[in-house]
Write a protein that binds this DNA or RNA. Structure first.
Lengths: 210, 210
DNA sequence: TTTGAATTGTAACCTTTGTTACTGCCACGA
DNA sequence: TCGTGGCAGTAACAAAGGTTACAATTCAAA
């Protein structure tokens, strides 16, 4: 784990902090599709992403979902941060988008380190800022763009996060994450295909040029 | 100012911090409608709300707006926080919803106090958390609800923030903040009136029972 | 090999929202 | 008092997106 830590966080954390994380943190591997946090959960530790990606989802009253954003290498979950401190329940669901490695840090350390390490404080503030910005982008997408544009953004985002121009999703899965219906997704994907921007296969989509 | 501070922040901040705020903060009064922060501004000080209310707006590429949330007594602006630390430009616009009193704190103190005062750290984290939650609610509204429901929420919210069941807004103003058109707002308001939930007047709306 | 479930394509239709256009009304200042 | 501009009501229409239904295809399990 020390190796992982140094590789990913040396530029962020001072030596002593890296050492402490190494002491109290536990390495955790999660498989693609595995659930990390459920809505309503009490959160007892905070994740630092070493590799992979985690998608953060919001749910409506009918149980339907909306993708908020992805966490990637070097990120942490801002929701978790405050849930820890405030002892409130999680407002979001977190699911591994890829096979993912993380370091889990017990919440007691959060408070302690915030007083002790300047680099930790900066990291936490940076994380909050990044998440707020991502939330703003999500709001922009929903409020200012039509579904066809949102779908393109979604595909681009997916390509970036997975680093793969072949997206292994069904139309239904995409519909869930955009909070729309399968028929609408099929319709718009077909239009993108006819424009030569993607190619459609069963259970997957090849991005040609978006 | 010391009086204001003690009245509003004694339960939050330790004595020594209140004293410091009193030393370095400056009191500022802004009139309803006055702009506090514009998109793209560099932010050089951080506001603590003593009284009144401030609305936070996002803008799309066409210059049209969307209301994100209100700040009230005891709140601070989470965007400002990180803009200060990260030296980035403001992503949002802030306009006084009512006549508002705030204490402006120079950004240099931010960093210092975060290391020095536990109560300040907690306040900052609380603020971030509150803002994230409000952003989530905004996302819920836009993504999960129809315009008629969003309009009702908007009116309820406005009533709560202004503490007045008479809302002094034109249909056009409401349309801007909900990012829709005046005709749509007029249509839906008329429907609410015919249901006996509101009464419509020129330049104002009386909330009867929502 | 057969069966059944999951996936995709597509048509037809409905609802919601956005757009355009025109009207009447009110308020304020010339 | 008369215009003028802002505000609100409403009709007619357009566009986007959601719903239902059904057919065709694929794939894995029995």
């Amino acid at each position: 784990m020390l190796h992982n830590l140094k590789e990913n966080f040396t530029h962020l954390f001072e030596e002593a902090l890296i050492e402490e994380i190494n002491q109290v943190g536990t390495l955790r591997e999660i498989k693609e599709g595995e659930k990390l946090i459920e809505i309503g959960d009490y959160v007892r530790s905070m994740p630092l992403l070493i590799s992979g990606a985690v998608k953060i989802l919001r749910e409506d009253d009918d149980g339907d979902e909306l993708l908020l954003y992805f966490l990637e290498r070097g990120d942490t979950c801002a929701m978790t941060l405050t849930c820890c401190l405030g002892q409130t329940r999680s407002e979001i669901r977190a699911i591994a988008e890829l096979d993912t490695t993380l370091i889990m840090i017990p919440i007691q350390k959060m408070e302690e380190w915030t007083g002790k390490y300047r680099s930790w404080r900066n990291f936490v503030f940076q994380s909050y800022h990044a998440r707020l910005i991502e939330m703003l982008e999500t709001i922009d997408s929903i409020a200012f763009f039509n579904m066809d544009e949102r779908l393109v953004k979604y595909l681009q985002n997916k390509q970036k996060v997975t680093n793969d121009s072949l997206i292994n999703s069904t139309h239904q899965e995409i519909a869930y994450e955009l909070h729309t219906s399968r028929v609408v997704v099929s319709r718009l994907l077909k239009k993108l295909e006819s424009l030569g921007k993607i190619e459609l296969y069963r259970n997957s989509i090849k991005i040609v040029s978006l």
